[in-house]
Design a binder for these strands. Structure first.
Lengths: 356, 356
DNA sequence: TTCCGTTGCTAAATCGGGTTAGCGCCCGAT
DNA sequence: ATCGGGCGCTAACCCGATTTAGCAACGGAA
């Protein structure tokens, strides 16, 4: 059935040379070590014919390397987001011949410890510590055993680890500018957080930063937020409740919803009050959940670039790995750089020019 | 920074014994090989103090094993489904001390070949070949090098590989019974596929099997499908179009939508025609996409048990792995068993008793 | 003829752990 | 005093690849 792997010894034997000779030829060092053309050809031919592939486990033992990186996240199952992030990381890793170990901690510190240990036991060359929603996390000790990168997360304490996060502040600005560009200046309300910077769900980096960006862009244009409603959790039902509450006392011309699920609730509330999107009320949102293009009218939203985040994390990790081998951990006390990945606006149908 | 791993040699030295002795003690074979209590204690203490952990790569080289399984899917980024499946697999694997390699083929056969090779190079102990929507796939050659299981996929040609799939036929029956139990007997229409068995999207196992189940349960009750509309793709926009088309000529009392996204489109179409769910039209659907509980009224749907599918695949794989080591590949020409995972009904608000 | 310098390859050690065969020692029996 | 046998441990080899040091063989020069 499985006819035993072809090993280097098999190739050497077939070529009539010793194992080291075959190794030298196959690793391309044949020239510099003066292996004859004849032998080189014989080895290459034998390797080809036997379909030789080096056993990475063995190389790993020798070199301490595994061509593998560990991807540890709190949850992979929360929405599609995770999938895209993993996909980006997967492809970037594959391009360099690396595989990905996936692990899930469920936010459990003990599980996280065990998982990092298990990955360490398998000699991963690097680690990505991912969070499925942008937040600040406590960096586990012992992470420094291998190069590591934080993904979609910021360290609570200062660490030398670099971080890759979406540029939420700029996203906030962009969302606001979508409305400004459409001529909206009055009756702009926020659903999900605000109006003050402290009116945000706990732990949510996204909420604070989006709010900062929104206020900044509106402020620059001399526009004031007309009002806001917070949501305890960013789910449709709370978006529905918050928007209903708003509509009882106000006549918004535009809503900035803090994510697409809230926007879905807002659509439902507006429908209840007989208001049309975007004719009566324009809506802009965040995330670009698949949902956004299923809604009627399709939702204009500032996308979380999950795929790019995953890619970027791997790229930063590889840079880190090279750095660590080159400098031999010289400047280990530097502080980690934060890489911000731009969030693009997806213009759809939920924003129309202000009639004012 | 990273103070070199503690090896068995370190433990042996600290305990003042030879490497093999330490190995014997730590592998629990000390007793049978008459290692003295004194030495045993010294070794255990040394291992504890040094926080010794065996290097799995090394063990892997010796034993040809890696305590790792490969999870190869066509796409991990399609909807939340994938995440839950991976999560189930992840947890089941972790319970046995196994890690998961994740790989994505994008449906590209060449990529698939390379990926399987890369996993083989890393000596995975088993493989899960997953599809993100239930369908029949061509089983790649060379897969037989390690134990393997098909997940959410059926083999096109007969193979010895077992498969784990959702029980879609029973799901169809259950969906139909939800309506029957509510007293519906007339005006039941299908959106997405049917009414004949050949009116289904290409390659979709789910469509065929759900349809079979629906017709079976309705048939048993002496109820006829009033009509059906197909959708080229199971997306909201097509659900919307199909349902609109239906409503122009018919007055349905109940709809069976072939998935939740179609149901979302159906909701929109019913709204356009001023019809209320479930007062005017009851709706039952499939998948239990997160969407289903965001819709108003919340959607009654037969859930795809992604988490359980992932778990089950790993369990079947482990059984397979044991079998292969025990029997030493004796009965290799047997044909793979198909495991069907039940799909539970999630009763929500979109079905009401028939007024007829 | 001897010595040196190349050329072209291989022996041996290494990585970290596991396994098997067998060595020395002590004890009691002869 | 010698032998046999159990006890307690270790030498030596294995997995598959890489690396370093060094060994033959040959040719040219002295």
């Amino acid at each position: 059935m499985s006819p035993r792997r072809v090993t280097l010894a098999d190739v050497a034997k077939a070529a009539g040379v010793s194992r080291p000779t075959a190794s030298l030829v196959l690793s391309g060092r044949g020239r510099e070590l003066r292996i004859s053309q004849d032998v080189e050809q014989r080895v290459l031919r034998a390797a080809e014919e036997l379909q030789y592939r080096p056993n990475i486990v063995s190389v790993g033992l020798r070199t301490g390397t595994s061509r593998t990186i560990g991807f540890v996240s709190d949850t992979v199952a929360t929405s599609r987001l995770a999938g895209d992030m993993i996909k980006g990381a997967l492809e970037a890793a594959r391009e360099r011949g690396f595989m990905l170990f996936i692990g899930e901690t469920e936010g459990d510190a003990e599980l996280e410890r065990l998982l990092l240990q298990a990955m360490h036991d398998r000699q991963v060359d690097g680690l990505i510590l991912a969070s499925m929603f942008t937040r600040s996390i406590k960096v586990p000790k012992g992470i420094t055993a291998a190069p590591a990168v934080l993904l979609n997360a910021l360290p609570k304490q200062p660490t030398p680890l670099p971080a890759v996060v979406p540029d939420e502040v700029e996203a906030g600005r962009r969302a606001a500018r979508v409305l400004l560009d459409a001529g909206h200046r009055d009756g702009i309300y926020l659903i999900g957080a605000g109006p003050r910077l402290r009116d945000v769900p706990a732990q949510s980096v996204a909420a604070v930063e989006r709010l900062v960006g929104i206020r900044e862009a509106l402020g620059e244009a001399g526009v004031k937020v007309a009002g806001a409603r917070t949501c305890p959790d960013w789910q449709p039902e709370y978006g529905l409740a918050a928007t209903r509450d708003l509509l009882r006392t106000a006549q918004p011309r535009a809503l900035i919803c803090f994510n697409d699920r809230i926007a879905m609730g807002a659509y439902q509330a507006l429908d209840d009050f007989g208001l049309k999107v975007p004719a009566d009320v324009s809506i802009v949102s965040f995330d670009d959940h698949p949902l956004a293009s299923w809604m009627r009218p399709q939702l204009t939203t500032v996308a979380l670039p999950h795929y790019e985040l995953g890619r970027k994390a791997v790229e930063v990790l590889f840079a880190e790995m090279e750095l660590l081998t080159e400098t031999d951990r010289a400047d280990t006390d530097r502080t980690g750089e934060v890489h911000r990945v731009p969030m693009p606006v997806r213009s759809r149908e939920s924003v129309s020019p202000s009639m004012a």
